[in-house]
Write a protein that binds this DNA or RNA. Structure first.
Lengths: 223, 223
DNA sequence: TAAAACATAATTGTCGACAATATTTGACTT
DNA sequence: AAGTCAAATATTGTCGACAATTATGTTTTA
């Protein structure tokens, strides 16, 4: 899909490893990160490890205190709410700019993506598939269409990991797969029509509904 | 004003030093960063320096390529435009949440800040003062009032330095100090009234006007 | 003369060791 | 027995050195 990962240094690989481990919960949320322990476990020097930890801090997956060390962030409903509010603002703007800047080719790809997701969700376990990759995929592509490089970096590199972490660890499979897909369709049509104002409005509504859904699921744990 | 800077390690200090140097243009935009040179100049080991550079990368002041090194970002009109668009979305949301969450005390402080800025701009060179610190100050405080910690970090720690860099190096003194102060006043009143919808709208308009002003000044350099 | 290939120099990446700080352990006092 | 202080231990911060990669400059060749 995207360009193949170019050669990367040890710190990059270590960052990728830790990133997955934190997102999936293999390294527990709220736990302390021990440099000697991890450095031995990953067969990496502390220097490379520390650089990796620095990047984890940059994308908000860990917090660091001087002379004390790094901790994986703790998940909370409040924090998740804040992230959704930021996404509403940022992805709303992304949708607006996508309507202004997306090429014909990109719009075609958006339609294809939507169709692909529709087919996938008809299969068994489609809901889960959609929840874990499909939805983020759609949002990712809309952001790309904005052609706003700062926005792409902010959402794609900084907030993306956080969102995935919450999906993995908080993530009950959503009951609103069908409505979400329909809302995606509306957004795409507004983008295709070049109506930035409408695209922003629809995207914001979509994210707000998604947020409300998650929040009620969390505050009333049913299982 | 804010809490006094607590004890910090060498990497922190080095980051602060480089941050200023880059923002003010002492280290020229687009120039390459030589680790041996800087490490000797600042009397700091390369390890500490590299950690500082990592943080510069995190707040987008430098870009890094594997095995090649770090470069200070290049300033461009396009990039500045993108930053303003992100600020419009993010600070609009901040104003909305400030209207919902700000305490009476914080609102009083906003009024005091506005009054202070009004007085300052009546003095000689007030326009320059306002341009370089006052305006950012107001926006900073509104963001604080949102009580959204993620938003505060994103705007305050990540985007703040970038904005200052553009102000310093692109920054002709604005001709719209008075209108800007008036717009600030409107935003504060909406926040005080608890009208989030209006506060967001007013803040977005304010930032958009500020953006348009800068953009025309840049594309028609008058001096 | 221009371009390719090689050798040299400089820069970034990686590592282990030492110093400074924080945490734990344990003895001692009240 | 509980609390406090001090020594001991472990963790983070900092450094200089070596390895790998990239940039430079020279020579060789078409």
């Amino acid at each position: 899909m995207t360009a193949t990962k170019q050669i990367q240094n040890l710190a990059d690989k270590t960052f990728a490893t830790l990133c997955s481990a934190i997102i999936t919960g293999e390294i527990k949320a709220g736990s302390k990160i021990s440099e000697p322990e991890l450095s031995a476990q990953l067969h990496v020097s502390r220097a490379s490890l520390r650089e990796a930890i620095g990047r984890l801090e940059a994308c908000k997956l860990v917090t660091r205190k001087a002379n004390i060390g790094a901790r994986v962030i703790s998940l909370s409903q409040q924090s998740l709410l804040e992230i959704y509010q930021i996404r509403e603002a940022l992805e709303g703007m992304a949708a607006r700019q996508a309507a202004e800047n997306a090429s014909h080719k990109e719009i075609t790809q958006l339609h294809q993506l939507l169709e692909h997701h529709n087919k996938e969700t008809q299969k068994i376990n489609g809901a889960r598939y959609f929840q874990h990759t499909g939805d983020l995929d759609f949002h990712y592509h809309v952001v790309q269409c904005s052609h706003n490089q700062h926005l792409i970096n902010l959402l794609g590199k900084d907030l993306y990991h956080l969102m995935r972490m919450y999906r993995y660890q908080f993530g009950s499979v959503s009951q609103r797969v069908a409505p979400a897909l329909e809302e995606h369709s509306y957004v795409i049509h507004a983008i295709q029509a070049g109506d930035g104002e409408l695209a922003e409005l629809l995207m914001r509504n979509h994210i707000r509904r998604s947020r409300d859904n998650i929040m009620t699921l969390i505050s009333e744990p049913l299982s």
